[in-house]
Design a protein around this nucleic acid. Structure first.
Lengths: 148, 148
DNA sequence: TTGCAATTGTTGCATTTGCAACTTATAATG
DNA sequence: CATTATAAGTTGCAAATGCAACAATTGCAA
């Protein structure tokens, strides 16, 4: 097996590369869908985290969706400016905020679910039910193992 | 099933989200490894494409690794400055270049393979051989179907 | 309780990114 | 041919990003 073949095999057959390819297409699909809501991917992530659980601190949100602190600050700034979320003071600590969805923020929930379901459906449409099950199991296994 | 539960299920159980999570960890793992070579992800991608096949045009490279034209230009600028690749004139067309690895560029090949193998191995280490096979099959199926 | 360390969040600034406009060159069409 | 359309690559500029430094607060340990 020469170097040429090796490189091609790596690029087209390795799980890592394929996952990166699929992920970047997922991103552009979601971005496309989010455009009409005027949201970007990070804002989408923060909203999803808050739809799951409100009253989180910024650090907690960042941990949930893997966003560094400075990016969390700015994303929350943007969402607050759009009046989708609000910072409330934390009674227990004066150095952190508790983040809540506004009514307007709650209202975006269904739209976000539609988007994520649509993209997921599209992603999974070409594989069988059995394979879907397998894929989910495997991905969960990788993630729950930490993968770091 | 209330909204809370739905959101959590989407974030933690949907294939799309999980793939995005894994992909972002792959990126940071690779980035980490590339640091000591002084390369970034895009430069890594271009080098991989050229290790697979030399003499491509910039557009062809971009298509192979999903990089927009302007980014391809800049990445190739950077790699040329590092003397890892070179632009050669295309005899067939004066508006495109043919890109080749320099000796120094060829020499990075083995190091890149080591990195990608290491990251892949790490990714797949927690799943069984059967699951690895399943995962590869499924990912290939999704990609070959176009997924757009 | 005092002093040091760690946490939480923000921000200045340099680098990177992405869009759109641009140049040059080739292809297509009448 | 002449004209128009398309393609390949580059670049200016505004916006987004990431690092590192920062202020403010809290925890901890002597």
């Amino acid at each position: 097996m020469n170097k040429q073949t090796t490189a091609e095999k790596i690029r087209t057959n390795s799980a890592g590369w394929m996952i990166k390819m699929i992920s970047s297409r997922l991103d552009s699909n979601i971005k496309q869908e989010l455009k009409r809501l005027g949201l970007d991917l990070k804002q989408f992530g923060v909203l999803m985290a808050l739809l799951e659980e409100e009253g989180l601190t910024q650090t907690e949100i960042g941990k949930k969706i893997t966003l560094p602190g400075y990016a969390t600050t700015r994303t929350i700034d943007a969402l607050e400016k759009k009046q989708l979320i609000e910072r409330r003071t934390d009674e227990r600590s004066r150095r952190s905020y508790r983040i809540y969805l506004t009514d307007k923020g709650h209202a975006t929930g269904p739209e976000l679910f539609i988007i994520i379901n649509k993209v997921n459906k599209n992603l999974l449409s070409v594989i069988s039910a059995t394979e879907r099950k397998q894929l989910t199991t495997i991905l969960q296994k990788i993630l729950s193992a930490g993968f770091a």
